[in-house]
C-alpha cells in the first residue's frame, strides 16, 4: 500500500459543531508575531510585551493613556473638509472622505482635547493615521491652529502627537499652506512662553516633519518610529543606493540631534506631567 494514501480523514468536525473564535480576542504583534490576548495588549498600552513594538494607535487611545481617569473634553469636533479644488484621481475626494468618515467614525485626521495628566492641565492634539494616512489638509491645519489659540487664551501647555504621511495631496496647495499656518500660530505660542511638547510617532514624515512636529520646545518620539522628511522609497530612488539599516528611525534621529528623548509609551504620561511641572515651578 502506498504510504502516502490517507487512511483517516482530515477535519472531521461537521460545520454545525464547529466552534468559532470570536473576532478580536487575540492580537498578533506585527514585530515579532507574538500572540497576546487583546485585553492584555490593551493593558500594556498597545505595546508588545515580548519585543516592545509600539503599535500604531490613534487619538482615542492616546487620550485614554494621557488624561486622568479617561476624562477629557473634545473640542472643535464639527469641522469637515469641503474639497476646495474638486479633486478627483481614481475617484472623487468627497467620496473618499465620506467613506473614511464612515469606516473610522472620525471627522478628519486630528482630534483635539483638553484635560489633565497627573493633575497637570494640557491640550492634546492627536493625529489619526487611519484617516487617509493621517494626512494634513485644511481641517487638520484649522483644528491644530484653534488648539494653539486656546492654549494661548487659557495659558495651557500644548502637546501634539504626530502620526502622518505628510500633506493631503487632494487639497494640494491648501495642504501645503497648512504648514505655514500652523507655524504662524506656533510662533505666537512661543512668544507667550507657553510650553509645546511634540511627540513624533510611527510614521511622521513630509510636511508634518517640516512644520509643527519639529518645532516643539521638546521633540520626543516613541521607540522605533519612522521619522523623516522624504520617504525612504523616494530617497532610495533618488540616490540609487540602499539605505543604512537604522535610517530614519527614532534612534537615528535622536543620534543626529533632532530629538530630545525617546520615551516609551508606558513612561509617556509621567514624563509629560513631570516635565510640565518642572517648566512651571
Amino acid at each position: 500500500m502506498g504510504w502516502f494514501k490517507r487512511i483517516k480523514g482530515g477535519i472531521t468536525t461537521s460545520t454545525q459543531n464547529k466552534k468559532e473564535t470570536p473576532e478580536g480576542l487575540w492580537h498578533k504583534c506585527p514585530g515579532c508575531k507574538q500572540v497576546t490576548p487583546t485585553a492584555e495588549n490593551e493593558a500594556n498600552l498597545w505595546v508588545c510585551a515580548k519585543c516592545g513594538h509600539h503599535q500604531r494607535i490613534g487619538s482615542k487611545e492616546y487620550f485614554h493613556i494621557l488624561f486622568d481617569d479617561g476624562r477629557f473634553e473634545l473640542f472643535n469636533e464639527q469641522i469637515f473638509s469641503n474639497d476646495p479644488l474638486h479633486f478627483t484621481d481614481s475617484r472623487p475626494y468627497t467620496e473618499r472622505l465620506e467613506e473614511t468618515c464612515e469606516k473610522t467614525g472620525l471627522h478628519d485626521a486630528i482630534r483635539t482635547a483638553i484635560g489633565t495628566a497627573d493633575g497637570e492641565k494640557l491640550i492634546v492634539a492627536a493625529m489619526d493615521f487611519n484617516f487617509i494616512g493621517g494626512s494634513m489638509g485644511s481641517v487638520v491645519g484649522e483644528k491644530l491652529s484653534r488648539a494653539i489659540d486656546r492654549c494661548i487664551e487659557e495659558n495651557v501647555p500644548l502637546m501634539v502627537i504626530s502620526r502622518s504621511g505628510g500633506a493631503r495631496m487632494m487639497e494640494a496647495a491648501y495642504s501645503l499652506m497648512q504648514m505655514a499656518k500652523t507655524s504662524a500660530r506656533l510662533s505666537l505660542l512661543s512668544k507667550k512662553g507657553i510650553p509645546y511638547i511634540s511627540l513624533l510617532t510611527d510614521p511622521t514624515t513630509g510636511g508634518i516633519t517640516a512644520s509643527f512636529a519639529m518645532l516643539g520646545d521638546l521633540n520626543i518620539a516613541e521607540p522605533g518610529a519612522l521619522i523623516g522628511f522624504a520617504g525612504p522609497r523616494v530617497i532610495k530612488e533618488t540616490i540609487g543606493k540602499d539605505l543604512p539599516k537604522d535610517f530614519q528611525t527614532s534612534e537615528f534621529v535622536l543620534e543626529h540631534g533632532f530629538l530630545d528623548k525617546i520615551v516609551p509609551r508606558k513612561e509617556l504620561k509621567p514624563f509629560i506631567a513631570n516635565m510640565l511641572r518642572m517648566l512651571a515651578s
Binding site: F80, Q178, A180
Partner: peptide, 11 residues
C-alpha cells in the same frame, strides 16, 4: 494672511 488659508465647513 497665512492663518486664513484653508477651506472647510463647520457644522
Amino acid at each position: 494672511k497665512f492663518s486664513a488659508m484653508g477651506s472647510f465647513v463647520e457644522e
